[in-house]
Amino acid sequence: MFNCFLHHKNFLLTCVLTLFLSTNTTHAQNTKKQIKALYIPLADHYAAVVAYEKYRDKMIHADFQIQQMKNWDLLRAYFQSGEVDMAYVMSPLAMDMYTEKAHFRWIGLMHRDGNALAINDIIKQKINLAKNRIDRKPDQQVAKALNAFNQSSGKPIEIGMPHLLATHTVVLYRYLKEHGLTLSLNSNTQASVLAISLAPPKAPAFIKSKSIRNKAAAFEQSLPWADVVETGGFGHVAWYSKDVMPWENGHVECIALATNHAISEKFEATQEVMNYIKLAGADIEQARTQGGEKLAEIVKIIRKHIPAHTKEAIIASLDPKLRVINYQSLNIDKPGLAQIMNLAVEGNILKQKINIDEFSDIRFDTK
């Protein structure tokens, strides 16, 4: 009978412990704050995807969720509605959004550098393109070819950008300016080059269709799209943005935004997400250097969420020798953003400047 009593007592204790642990786990889950973030399928946002896959279950404060958007205008509209907590946005677009509705703050970087100019064979025929991509620099060759097409047709050559308010547009403006050419965002304004909005996934098809009609074509897009056309054999990387816009640690590109509501009501959760994005960035950096299984794991994670990015293009984009995009030094970089802003206003890409100190929340910076 005594053994029965012990058995019954142990059973009750097990039940109580199970109930206690279950209640505590449920309580922990219930106390997590939802942090929903919007992203675009680009190498720019790989760290967010990696953070989601590797670390969301380790987060104590945040119930981290990501939602992929098809284009920048949809992302802008959704984020400006105030229904989500975070978004990863190109810096000129983010500043324009802030001018429109200042309901969010800048809390960090998603990456540095990371876009490239891709050209088709029609343009390549007019230039001497270095065999190795690391040797392709923003010299005058492409500018001279663009000018020649402009002079012969009497029309500006169209170059596809992910959005007219893209960092890419600022980079292109600077490149053209340094070689005596002009850029317009409006077809009614006379210029050497006309920037047109072109959703990143459609950029390779844009190059292909123009080539079929024997027309010069180019686009400036985030990685890996420029690498997609080169690895696919129907286009060429002409130069990388890091060489047009040299900056310590790499130029500012896509930045992380959080709504004022998320910052005030879910500060620990928002901070936790940003910290894990930085950790995920470090993971990508380690994987690209070591290669092997670590790189294979990163590629697998990325392709799970962005299957349009081929294994070859992802690996090419993360080439440790090229280092044309990096996920280091992701704290707020005010002088780096000022560089982009000043050029954007000068090139009539942005209508006005913003107060970068008010735009930033440096509490999210890590040592």
Rank of each mutant, 00 (worst) to 15 (best):
T167W: 02
T289N: 13
P156Q: 07
N128M: 10
I340S: 00
H261D: 15
R213E: 12
Y240R: 11
A118K: 00
M97F: 05
V345W: 05
L146A: 05
P320L: 06
Q352N: 11
R213L: 11
S81E: 15
Q65Y: 10
I314D: 00
A145C: 07
I306A: 04
A116C: 10
D283Q: 12
E285L: 14
T26Q: 10
D361A: 03
V142R: 00
R56D: 06
T169F: 03
D139P: 01
E53P: 02
A344E: 01
A308H: 10
W225Y: 15
D365W: 02
E220S: 10
L12V: 12
L343I: 12
H236S: 13
G82A: 13
P200M: 03
P162M: 07
L181T: 05
A238C: 08
I159F: 04
D139L: 03
E272W: 08
H179W: 11
Q68G: 13
K131A: 12
E293L: 15
Q339G: 04
K300R: 14
S241M: 07
S360F: 03
N342G: 07
H163Y: 07
H103P: 06
K33R: 09
R105H: 11
A47K: 01
P320T: 08
I298Y: 02
S317Y: 04
H309D: 07
P335Q: 05
E53R: 10
F5H: 08
L330N: 02
E346Q: 14
N260G: 08
K353T: 13
R133Q: 11
A287R: 00
N150I: 04
Y98E: 01
L172R: 02
H61W: 10
D113S: 07
I60K: 15
S153A: 10
G108E: 00
I315E: 09
R174L: 05
L279F: 09
I66G: 00
I325H: 00
K124Y: 03
I122P: 05
H45W: 03
E53Y: 13
Y88D: 04
L38I: 02
D63S: 14
F234M: 04
N147Q: 12
S91R: 03
P307L: 04
S360H: 03
N355S: 09
K304A: 14
F104A: 00
N326L: 06
S209T: 12
Q67K: 15
N188C: 09
V49R: 01
A148L: 09
I340L: 01
P224A: 06
E268R: 15
M110V: 08
L74T: 15
K321F: 14
K202P: 01
A226W: 04
M69P: 09
K9C: 08
K242C: 10
E358F: 09
W225G: 03
D85I: 02
W106T: 01
V273K: 00
H261Q: 15
E248S: 10
E293V: 15
A77G: 15
D333L: 00
I40M: 12
T289F: 14
L172C: 07
I60F: 13
M341A: 03
N10L: 11
S222G: 12
S360V: 04
L13S: 08
G291D: 14
A143I: 05
S184N: 11
I325Y: 00
L74A: 13
K9M: 09
Q29L: 12
M161D: 02
D139Q: 02
V229W: 01
Y55A: 05
G232M: 08
S152G: 05
N150V: 02
R174I: 05
